[in-house]
Simulated assay, not measured.
Amino acid sequence: MKRPLTTDREARRGVAFGLGAYVTWGCFPLFFALFQGVPAFEVLAHRVIWSCLFLAGLITLMRRWEPIRQALSAPRRLGRVLGCALLIATNWGLYIYSVESHQVFQASLGYFLTPLVNVALGMLVLRERMAMLQGIAVAIAGFAIAIQLMMLGELPWISLVLAFSFGTYGLLRKQVPLDGLSGLFVETLLLLPLGLMAVSWLSMIDQSHFHGTPRNTVLLIASGIITALPLLAFAGAARRLRLATLGFLMYLNPSIQFFLALLVFQEPLAPSQLATFVLIWTGLALYSWSAWQDRPRSEGSTRR
């Protein structure tokens, strides 16, 4: 009788961890909006540096250096990790830029698109078979982007780059034999020289905001910590929950961003943008239904 209670307790903890991770990611625009006057690339450089240092401290406390030693001892295997690092840096930098330039709606749309991009990449790159509903969902997403292109005369490039960079990152990340914590540390470690060079260059030309005010100094250091914490919460959720449950929680992130853009940042929402979101939401509903239908039947009766 104790086992189901223990399992239920672990599931509740998993949901709490998942909510913590996705709600934190969804609220990121509120944090990055505080960097008024600090260029996105400078925030990115400090995010890399302080994430790396914070993760190094965590790994030391948790005594998790062995998988990292193994990864670094085989330089030929670091190619995919470097690819992951460049993709996540692109994603982080563009996301910060979208907040600073008051384009949170585009960021939200990008993360709504990501699951559908994952399906398309799985079919094109991994030759995975696409279920009929998943194919319809991807087609609806493509139609939504075409509508925005026709009505606004421009591609929602921020949304597309965010979706494809994160989707491709996930594709490569699956091929890297490192857990979330170790993987993020190695990625930031590979980016660390670039981050240090950027910060040094800004200091040399007297354009650094790090020592400008105590507020900026604290915020730039905190950017590294706030990057790592939701990842740790997500790892805790992933160990305790089914992928289907995590998939539904994932939509919290862009949903929160959408309402922040609408209610807090008061960004204008053109009819064409609203039509794009409605079509994407329709595609996501079909995708989620397809994923639910294709889940292993044993999941409904057996819990891990």
Rank of each mutant, 00 (worst) to 15 (best):
G110I: 05
Y287Q: 05
I221E: 10
L279I: 00
S272V: 00
A275K: 09
R127V: 00
L72R: 04
G195R: 11
P193D: 12
Q175M: 09
I88M: 06
W65P: 02
P29F: 03
L58Y: 09
S223Y: 06
K2N: 15
L72D: 06
C84A: 11
E100Y: 00
Y169P: 08
R80W: 00
P39I: 00
L34M: 13
G224V: 01
R297E: 10
L5S: 14
I225N: 15
W201Y: 10
A89Q: 07
P193S: 10
A222E: 08
T6P: 04
G14A: 07
G93E: 11
L196Q: 08
L5D: 15
L202I: 00
W157N: 09
V264P: 13
F31E: 12
Q175D: 15
V218G: 06
P296T: 01
I205N: 15
F35H: 12
A45K: 03
L243Y: 12
F185T: 01
L133Y: 08
R12Q: 12
S255Q: 04
L189F: 02
A222S: 08
A21Q: 03
R242M: 06
F185H: 13
L178E: 12
S255M: 07
W65R: 08
Y251R: 10
A233E: 12
L284Y: 00
V278N: 01
S272F: 00
G20P: 12
H102G: 11
F164A: 12
I59A: 04
L172V: 04
A120N: 04
S208F: 04
W65K: 04
I226T: 12
L184N: 09
F143A: 15
Y97C: 10
A222T: 06
S101R: 09
P214C: 03
A56Y: 13
A33D: 13
T188A: 13
V38K: 14
E299R: 05
E66A: 01
G14T: 08
Y169C: 06
A139S: 14
G79M: 09
L94F: 08
P115K: 02
L184W: 01
P29R: 02
L116S: 09
S301Q: 12
Q103F: 08
Q134K: 08
E154G: 11
Y251G: 07
W65G: 02
I147E: 13
F248H: 07
N216W: 02
G26P: 05
L53Y: 01
T213H: 08
A137P: 07
V125T: 07
G135F: 08
A163I: 05
